[in-house]
């Protein structure tokens, strides 16, 4: 995994939003890479900056967004410097996105076959017949049964899970290099969710696309991601391989996230929870933004922003606890259990 080439490089990205209440610092200096063929999951709470990040990759941020600094390198060019015409060439062809709600991302008045064919006609200049033939193929690939007959149906004639399959067909029909999936299964039932996730994995290998997967569901992350970036208050606070994040997490926020989600084995009387609420990004606190909710916070956390400390070649965390001078702390019991389990299996 480590040796794969980067397909996307985000560097020092900072984005503000001008609102009537003041300037919201939605993203504060984030950098990450996306490698060819991998799935990178971005997790975090609402308002942590997950969607703003991906929307800037798509060039879809609202007009009051102000890119303060940074670059998004894709295909030898900085996406942030492209004009609307160049961006629309990228969108739906090389970079595609699927959204949370399949009903609002489909056009209710257009037959589904036409909706899948449209990106082919626009980006590849295919004739209507050729595009429709390919659309049919794509609909079969995403598992629409009786695709020949259903190609002329409208979105309302499909269930939520089937609609999301159609959305996936539209997104993948041009074999994009990057697929952004923003909470693609949150609106679906668990059994349908499981099938959609399976489909996404299968198609990923088939067309060798890289996926940025945004979700707040750590269970889904565990099943989908090769690497994970944890965001808090507009910053990435920890990133690493999926095993490193789930079995050897270092940032107290990651501990809190993992702890507050019960597994089927949880039977503690009180669920470990993160107290308080995320900070106001109109006026982000100095130092580590998580300090106010962090019982492991050190004095320096409220003064100076922690840099990234290296845990392994692939694993970095921005917490002062990793500094040599920091006191040794024992993570919560459930995290210790995760680490023990991991060390055992690594040796065995």
């Amino acid at each position: 995994m480590e040796n794969k080439e980067n397909i996307l490089e985000v560097r020092n990205l900072s984005i503000n939003f001008k609102t009537y209440a003041g300037t919201v610092q939605a993203i504060r200096d984030i950098s990450f890479d996306l490698k060819k063929g991998e799935t990178l999951a971005i997790v975090g709470e609402s308002g942590s900056g997950k969607s703003v990040t991906t929307r800037s990759i798509m060039g879809l941020n609202a007009t009051n967004a102000d890119v303060v600094d940074g670059s998004i390198e894709f295909d030898g060019q900085d996406i942030l410097q492209l004009d609307e015409k160049e961006l629309s060439k990228l969108r739906g062809s090389k970079i595609a996105e699927i959204f949370q709600d399949p009903m609002t991302s489909l056009d209710p008045t257009m037959k589904i076959g036409r909706q899948v064919a449209e990106p082919l006609m626009i980006h590849q200049g295919l004739s209507k017949e050729k595009a429709m033939a390919k659309a049919l193929e794509m609909l079969k690939l995403v598992g629409i049964t009786n695709a020949e007959e259903r190609i002329n149906d409208y979105p309302y004639q499909f269930s939520g899970g089937m609609r999301q399959r159609i959305v996936i067909a539209i997104a993948l029909v041009n074999y994009p290099e990057i697929l952004i999936a923003d909470e693609p299964t949150t609106a679906l039932d668990v059994t349908i969710q499981a099938k959609i996730l399976e489909l996404m994995k299968e198609l990923q290998t088939k067309i060798n696309t890289s996926i940025i997967f945004i979700t707040h569901d750590l269970g889904v992350v565990a099943g989908m991601a090769d690497r994970v970036a944890v965001m808090y208050a507009g910053k990435i606070v920890e990133y690493g391989t999926v095993d490193e994040i789930f079995y050897n997490p270092k940032h107290p926020y990651t501990w809190g996230l993992l702890g507050s989600m019960p597994t089927l084995d949880t039977n503690e009387d009180v669920l470990p929870s993160i107290p308080g609420t995320p900070p106001d990004l109109l006026d982000p606190p100095a130092g580590d933004a998580f300090a106010a909710r962090n019982k492991y916070a050190l004095k320096i956390d409220t003064i100076e922003q922690p840099p990234f400390f290296k845990v392994s070649d692939t694993h970095y965390a921005a917490t002062w606890l990793l500094d040599d001078r920091a006191p040794k702390v024992t993570p919560p019991a459930d995290i210790v259990k995760r680490q023990e389990h991991f060390n055992k299996t690594k040796q065995g």
């Binding site: 668990v190 059994t191 969710q193 499981a194 996730l197 569901d217 750590l218 269970g219 889904v220 992350v221 565990a222 099943g223 999926v242 095993d243 789930f246 079995y247 993992l258 989600m261 597994t263 089927l264």
Partner: peptide, 8 residues
């Protein structure tokens, strides 16, 4: 069988 579990 479909419940996602936070354990890779």
């Amino acid at each position: 069988s479909a419940v996602p579990v936070p354990d890779p």
